[in-house]
Amino acid sequence: MNSRIFPLLGFAVLVVLLVVGLKIADQKTNLPSPLIDKPVPVFDLPVLANPGQTMSAESLLGKFYLVNFWGSWCVTCRAEHPVVTQLARLNAVYIVGMNFRDESEDAIAWLQRWGDPYDVSLIDYDGRVSIDFGVYAAPETFLVDPSGTIVFKHLGQLTWDIVETEILPRLANTESGS
């Protein structure tokens, strides 16, 4: 074979890669979480409404629950707030609001102003628990199954579409399966 055709072939492969690269360019910041199918990180945090009381991951075993990381400083959290509220109205899943890197008074004021969709809000003041969850931006949402395993994670703004296609089916499936 004519060896002078090799550069052209190599270049063709490169172009294919770049075409694919261009297609997936907008998803490149969307990192898969290594925590999927892993047990939920251990936490025991004060409750926002009553800081004297704490809630732990252990106490949430036995039911599906959603962990939604948010902060009053986070603009996108405000944007996804109606979706979380709508989901809360369905009463389909227990929702834990994880208020992180925030001042509690700001957080309480935020919930009063926009409405509180959370079954409970916990204070992760220094963001330690958010690091254990591998959170790097806000909002991030995790779905935990009754055995305490993370089954789904969404980075960024939650949309109703995601709730319908990713979260609700998972609740139904596993329930009928078990």
Binding site: G71, W73, C74, V75, T76, R101, D102, E103, A137, A138
Partner: peptide
């Protein structure tokens, strides 16, 4: 400004 919201968190 929105993209900077991540910077407006509680001062680390």
């Amino acid at each position: 400004t929105l993209s900077f919201s991540v910077l407006a968190q509680r001062a680390p």
